[in-house]
Simulated scan of single mutants.
Amino acid sequence: MTENLNRLMRLFRWWTSQWWITRDRSFMEAPLRAALSINELGEPLNQLYGYATNIGTLGYERLLDETIFTRVCQAFAIGRDIPISAGAFLDSIYSHSLQNTRQSLFEASIACESAIQEAAAHHAATLQVPVEELERSLKGSDLLFNLDRGVKSILGRSFREDCPEQYDWIRKLWAARGRVAHGKSALIVHDGQRRTPTPEDRVAMIHSVHRLFFWFQSIRSESSQQ
């Protein structure tokens, strides 16, 4: 009973992209700071100012309406669960909301790797061939190769060629994730500058992973119409 309820909630999370579903509400606790100007004697020069930061929605989230509710119920009835890629992607947004850069990088990377595996499995099912046959075109955990020549060998399209800007952000994501995996600080190179990923950088990475999902989806739609 508990597992069925958890699966149902995961489906609601997936179909609405409400990444906070099944997670706690700590992301709503905005970091608070106060600032006060003082002179050389430590005496206040003006009033105390308060500052707060928080992470809002990213534009993917949808309200639970009747259509989504019906689709979730249908998916639940046939035993479906949230794909690994979608779960990792939503987890990466949640970690980003907590300003946990390291965890967000790991989860966004897992989302990319899983999306490739899921695309290969879907295409293998369409062609009615063993998925292992298609996975020979992939190069292990070399995400950048797989998003370029790897998926092109399988699907006839390269994410690097079709979406160069988003590919470049995923390249930065992958490089930062590699540093973190080896116990180093997360760094990216952007506009010739080496720096720690800013909140804007992390959002750009998340948007790029989201674009990858839709790229795979568009290829599936095109192939189903042929």
Rank of each mutant, 00 (worst) to 15 (best):
N4T: 02
N4Q: 13
N6M: 11
R7H: 01
R7M: 02
R7G: 01
L8G: 00
M9Q: 10
M9H: 08
R10G: 13
R10V: 00
R10C: 05
L11S: 01
L11N: 00
F12K: 09
W15M: 10
T16E: 02
T16N: 03
T16C: 05
Q18M: 05
Q18T: 08
W19R: 06
T22H: 01
D24S: 15
R25W: 11
S26A: 14
F27T: 05
M28G: 08
P31I: 03
A34E: 08
A34D: 02
S37R: 14
L41K: 15
G42Q: 10
E43Y: 13
L45Y: 02
L45N: 06
N46L: 11
L48W: 13
Y49W: 11
Y49M: 12
Y49C: 09
G50E: 08
G56P: 02
G56A: 07
L58E: 05
R62K: 15
D65T: 01
E66Q: 13
T67L: 10
T67M: 07
T70V: 05
V72P: 02
C73K: 11
F76I: 01
F76C: 05
G79R: 03
G79M: 04
G79H: 03
R80V: 03
R80F: 08
I82K: 02
P83I: 00
S85W: 06
S85I: 01
A86R: 06
G87I: 00
D91E: 09
D91I: 01
S92K: 04
S92A: 15
I93G: 06
S95N: 10
H96L: 11
S97G: 04
Q99L: 12
Q99H: 09
N100Y: 10
F106I: 13
F106C: 04
S109I: 02
A111E: 04
S114N: 09
S114K: 08
I116L: 14
E118Q: 10
E118Y: 07
A119T: 01
A119P: 00
H122F: 08
A124F: 00
A125I: 08
L127R: 13
V129D: 00
P130M: 03
V131W: 01
E132S: 14
E133R: 15
E133Q: 15
L134F: 05
S137R: 12
S137H: 15
S137A: 15
G140E: 03
S141F: 13
F145C: 01
F145Q: 04
N146F: 07
